[in-house]
Amino acid sequence: MLDATSMPQNVVVLGGSSDIAKEFIKLLSSRRLEKILLVGRNKDKLDEFGDELRNLNIEPQIFIHDTRNFDSAQQLANVIKNEFTRVDLLLVATGMLGNANIDALGLNGVQEMIEVNFTGPAIDITSVLPILKDQRGSRVIALSSVAAIRPRKDNYIYSAAKSGFDNFLQGIAKELEPYSVETSIVRFGFVKTSMTTGLKPAPFTIELKDASQLLMTVLEKRKTGIIYLPPILKYLFLILKNLPDTIWWKISERS
């Protein structure tokens, strides 16, 4: 159950080895977290995090599932039903960043980028949807990105996928609203994680621990809908979103 400050007892994480998710879960573990299901494709990384959680007295369940696999996505709902009487928080952190050079990515690379950032997690969420509706009250926090707003030359495939996913999430939020499920779509700016290692930090870059602390505030203060983290990006992107194309491409190439 969620408590008055929205602290969850049972949590399901899609993309369980995401750095931001892991840092956030550690914060939740010091509050009311009891049971957690980690879903992801990298068994070693999930096992490693599972061990860490065991040291924090949380009993993790692990479900190996590549978000591109339609068959295991169909099983996801059953796995959750078997493990939990209720899900208090669904955290969606599935995603990957990568070289956006389209020639280097090739057909497989582009397909993977789109599936892992958009179609995969969209199918996963669809699979879990009936459980959320049935419960009549819970939270969804899904990680989007400011990259969803406008494409840059060096990330437009990622940006396109995230943009599709972001729009999908906005619809899901409306879909779930009548069932008392509150959805937060978090558009993160640049967060220093293993995923962004080697990339040039953007303005208002934040550390991992700040990112997880900001997510905690989203949860506690029941912030729903589209949320920019850090919050200042809301105003920055209000401007950037409305720049004429020529100026946007010039600025985005320079930064």
Partner: peptide, 11 residues
């Protein structure tokens, strides 16, 4: 009032 950091203080 529910506010950031409240759960920790109440604990």
């Amino acid at each position: 009032a529910i506010q950031a950091g409240l759960s920790e203080v109440l604990d």
